Amino acid sequence: MSDVVLRTPGLLSRFLPCIRADLEVAETCSLAYDTSLDCPVHAFAGADDRLVTPDMVRAWSTVTTGTFDFHLFPGGHFFIQTSQRQVVDRVLTALGPLLSPTALVGPAATQEVHIPTAEFPRRKSG
């Protein structure tokens, strides 16, 4: 977490509920996989992350029978903020073959892709 957030009480109080919820999920959630994924998995970690260590992220290799690529970036838990350009480059490299016009051929090339979205209740103001 940024020093600015930690030193600014009003800002810190806005982040704490989200951080508490993340920690609760991390402490109480236990996932069991009956089936492995049959697709590539790309895992990203911050080298100095003490909350989710690089070894914990590497453990995701067990969820796929496809390829597993582990990417380590400088920074802690919020490495995406300090290594944003490198993370975006890695994501684009991974997705590049899927985004090219020749990646999809046949019936799949003309199908619409439906991405489900979740709507979250908005806080009432006032």
Rank of each mutant, 00 (worst) to 15 (best):
Asp22Pro: 01
Asp22Ala: 05
Leu23Lys: 10
Glu24Thr: 15
Val25His: 08
Val25Asp: 11
Val25Thr: 15
Ala26Phe: 05
Glu27Gln: 13
Cys29Trp: 03
Cys29Met: 12
Leu31His: 06
Leu31Cys: 05
Ala32Thr: 08
Ala32Cys: 04
Ala32Arg: 10
Tyr33Pro: 01
Thr35Tyr: 02
Thr35Arg: 11
Leu37Gln: 01
Cys39Asn: 05
Pro40Asn: 05
Val41Phe: 02
Val41Glu: 02
His42Pro: 00
Ala43Glu: 02
Ala43Tyr: 03
Phe44Trp: 00
Phe44Ser: 00
Ala45Met: 00
Ala45Lys: 00
Gly46Cys: 00
Asp48Phe: 01
Asp49Glu: 09
Arg50Phe: 08
Leu51Asp: 09
Leu51Ala: 10
Leu51Pro: 02
Leu51Val: 13
Val52Ser: 11
Thr53Ser: 12
Thr53Cys: 08
Pro54Phe: 07
Met56Asp: 15
Arg58Ala: 15
Trp60Arg: 07
Trp60Phe: 07
Ser61Pro: 09
Thr62Val: 15
Thr62Arg: 15
Thr62Asp: 15
Val63Asn: 03
Val63Met: 02
Val63Gly: 01
Val63His: 03
Thr64Phe: 02
Thr65His: 09
Gly66Arg: 02
Thr67Asn: 13
Asp69Ile: 14
Asp69Trp: 08
Asp69Phe: 07
Phe70Pro: 03
Phe73Thr: 01
Pro74Ser: 13
Pro74Trp: 03
Gly75Arg: 00
Gly75Trp: 01
Gly76Trp: 01
His77Met: 04
His77Tyr: 01
Phe78Tyr: 07
Ile80Val: 06
Ile80Pro: 00
Gln81Trp: 12
Thr82Ile: 08
Thr82Val: 13
Ser83Trp: 05
Gln84His: 14
Gln84Asn: 14
Arg85His: 11
Arg85Pro: 08
Val87Phe: 02
Val88Gly: 06
Val88Thr: 07
Val88Glu: 13
Val88Cys: 07
Asp89Ala: 11
Arg90Ile: 03
Val91Arg: 00
Val91Met: 02
Leu92Ser: 13
Leu92Trp: 09
Thr93Gly: 13
Leu95Ser: 09
Pro97Ala: 12
Leu98Thr: 12
Leu98Phe: 08
Leu98Asp: 15
Leu99Trp: 09
Ser100Tyr: 08
Ala103Ser: 14
Leu104Glu: 14
Leu104Thr: 10
Leu104Asn: 09
Gly106Thr: 13
Pro107Glu: 13
Pro107Asn: 09
Ala108Ile: 12
Ala109Val: 03
Ala109Asn: 05
Thr110Leu: 07
Thr110Asn: 07
Glu112Val: 03
Glu112Gln: 14
Glu112Ser: 11
Val113Gln: 14
Val113Trp: 07
